[in-house]
Design a protein around this nucleic acid. Structure first.
Lengths: 189, 189
DNA sequence: ATTTATATACCGACTGGACGGTTTAGTTGC
DNA sequence: GCAACTAAACCGTCCAGTCGGTATATAAAT
């Protein structure tokens, strides 16, 4: 099946890149097949040859996003300072990096949007989150702190995703520090 | 302008109710004027007489949501137990109540979605959040804990909004307790 | 070697339906 | 007589998905 030959990047990849860019630029609500095709440098027919429906394209985008996050997490694992609540700190750091770094957050927003039109699209995400919870539960010295730290990161990234964050860079830095303190020291008795 | 007469619920209210229901049922991405009009029990003409455009309707929905949250918060204020980080605890409790209670969360999701098509729609929300941050900053004994508690609540509600929460009722209860402990006791030294 | 067949990857005009909004002509209740 | 509609046709646009066709490569048959 994988007829991916020669040095050239596969059309699938080009299409997924184009779609991600467009989602970041105009939002998934406005994402059209024509626009994706044009950006990817092929025709709509060619696009639909690679992804038989818009839904299939969105699914592939979500899956690729999940894989990217999971890769980032695993490559971070080696460099993490040892200490308590390791798994939660790993999750937190990964999310905080991705969120403020690239345009990941805009793409993510867009896909959330898409999910509102077809909630099934988020099924794989649900799986990842459940698995993460298992991991965190199994690898935390202070579960309360681990969960709160994780949730705080979720909260912050969500605000940033929707461009709703009221925090200055200073504020954000302070919050990140506080999250790390919470994860390493725990809640006061 | 406000020709709101007699005992009958104003058309505006009926329309906003219908729209909120529909958003919760099918998502804002699929919200159509025809559907809202039918659900509200009037004609499309009547709907557009009350809200001259779909955008105006969405704006009004968001404003009403903001007002509802703000009302809930103020009516809670009287009953809050005194103690540290009062404002943050107030915000947290309000959000946690609304989130698990009604279908608020689905409506909220829907409006997030709408915002992806027209980001300006969230401007008033941005305002509320900034104001909340001011209030929290001005009324917290332990700002780090206050911010983390708030963010954790945001994170939890966001997960629940998207039906992405992996937490059991037990988990959730534990988390709510932990948030309260964080807000009253602070982060460990 | 040449024809024939088959598969892959793609093009792009077109269709059909959905949807926001307009318009028009009429109705009801204060 | 005006505000608040109803009812229904209509317009323009957007857009997912269809479909017949094309180019290239590889393989099979003659």
């Amino acid at each position: 099946m994988l007829g991916n030959v020669r040095g050239r990047k596969s059309s699938r990849e080009k299409i997924l890149d184009a779609a991600a860019e467009l989602v970041a630029e105009i939002g998934a609500g406005r994402l059209t097949l024509d626009a994706v095709a044009e950006r990817a440098g092929l025709s709509k027919g060619g696009l639909l040859y690679n992804f038989p429906s818009k839904d299939a394209l969105l699914q592939a985008m979500i899956q690729r996003m999940i894989d990217q996050v999971s890769d980032a997490k695993e490559s971070l694992r080696a460099q993490m300072a040892p200490g308590p609540n390791l798994e939660a700190r790993l999750v937190a750091t990964t999310l905080l990096n991705m969120c403020c770094g690239g345009k990941m957050q805009e793409v993510a927003t867009g896909l959330m949007v898409a999910s509102a039109e077809n909630p099934r699209l988020l099924d794989p995400v649900r799986g990842v989150i459940s698995a993460t919870l298992e991991q965190v539960k199994a690898n935390s010295d202070d579960l309360d702190a681990a969960l709160l730290g994780w949730l705080a990161v979720e909260g912050l990234s969500n605000l940033e995703m929707h461009n709703l964050s009221p925090f200055s860079d200073q504020d954000r830095e302070r919050i990140v520090q506080a999250i790390n303190r919470l994860l390493t020291k725990g809640i006061a008795k």
